[in-house]
């Protein structure tokens, strides 16, 4: 069906709070408020006629107190409206959370990353969202604020399905908190697309913590293979405490491939996703292991 994207088939009032407190007040006061950050997903969705109820559009991008990246007590803290392009070029991120930067660099076009925000990518809650697997393996916590107070949830708890999350009508995501990975930890992110700037056909993030030649902690997250980004616990279990070699990487990658239940859609097929999952997880494990200081794994 042809969609006329020249028309925005909705009408709304525009709100522009200058502070977090003001934004929370507006969320509590009005019904059907949609939070607008960069708008790079939301406006496209509205134009293509997605079923989104919006009477008030609240632009939070101007709230300066939610735009920051800082390191405090070994925690990397990122304000929800920090633009993606700021994060990808930030020194703290590149030092402590390199695969978040890699994942963002692999997202969309520069002109989109200049507007898009990390909070927006999380709240859009796409199963293919590229910041989600890295934040999942880094064990990020999301701070949700409401007028009643704040709460902290993991990324896995936050997202419940395609485009769905646990945010209540009067709540908003204000901060992403990521514990700085320990020494001897390495991570990798790989995504497969048809051409650069596409939405992922499939993506994965792997994090491995090394003690000598053993992996003591492993986290594997897969995107675009389920209704939301998922961790593959049986594969993580198979790696934990083991000596890392080619055999182990292949075994874990096979478990991932067997565990996932992807679907056919307009970007790829279930068959291809199951097959390529094995390949990218094996590759990501090899990279993560080497980055953790482990010996290079040759084929």
């Amino acid at each position: 069906m042809h969609v006329n994207t020249r028309i925005m088939p909705v009408e709304f009032e525009y709100l522009e709070p200058k502070t977090k407190a003001e934004a929370l007040e507006m969320l509590a006061k009005y019904d059907n408020v949609k939070v607008l950050a960069g708008g790079t997903d939301l406006i496209v969705k509205l134009k293509t006629g997605a079923d989104i109820k919006v009477d008030y559009m609240m632009n939070v991008k101007e709230i300066e107190e939610l735009n920051y990246i800082k390191l405090e007590d070994n925690l990397v803290k990122i304000g929800a409206v920090t633009p993606l392009s700021t994060i990808e070029n930030n020194e703290i991120i590149n030092k402590y959370l390199p695969i978040l930067s890699e994942a963002i660099k692999a997202m969309a076009a520069i002109a989109v990353r200049n507007m898009g925000t990390i909070g927006g990518n999380l709240c859009n809650s796409s199963p293919a969202g590229d910041t989600i697997p890295p934040l999942t393996v880094y064990d990020a916590k999301l701070i949700l604020a409401g007028k009643q107070g704040t709460k902290e949830v993991s990324v896995e708890e936050f997202i419940t399905g395609p485009g769905k999350n646990i945010l209540a009508q009067d709540e908003m995501l204000v901060e992403v908190v990521v514990p700085a990975p320990k020494e001897n930890t390495g991570a990798a992110f790989i995504k497969k697309t048809r051409v650069k700037a596409d939405i992922s056909k499939i993506n994965t993030a792997v994090l491995m913590e090394r003690v000598e030649d053993k992996c003591v902690n492993c986290r594997i997250a897969m995107g675009s293979v389920a209704a939301k980004v998922v961790r593959i616990l049986p594969a993580e279990e198979a790696v934990r405490g083991q000596k890392v070699d080619l055999n182990l990487c292949q075994k874990a990658a096979q478990i991932v491939s067997d565990e996932i239940k992807p679907i056919d859609d307009n970007r790829s097929t279930a068959e291809y996703r199951k097959e390529i999952a094995r390949v990218i997880v094996e590759d990501a494990m090899k990279i993560a292991w080497q980055r953790s200081g482990g010996e290079k794994i040759n084929d």
């Binding site: 994207t5 020249r6 525009y14 607008l36 708008g39 790079t40 406006i43 496209v44 134009k47 293509t48 559009m57 632009n59 633009p83 392009s85 076009a109 520069i110 002109a111 989109v112 200049n114 507007m115």
Partner: peptide, 23 residues
């Protein structure tokens, strides 16, 4: 008009953005 083609790109506050998906 949906952020794919890039011909509407302008410099907004010092960064390139797609004006069709910016209000």
């Amino acid at each position: 008009e949906m952020g794919d083609c890039g011909t509407c790109t302008v410099i907004f506050n010092g960064s390139s953005v797609k004006s069709c998906i910016t209000l």
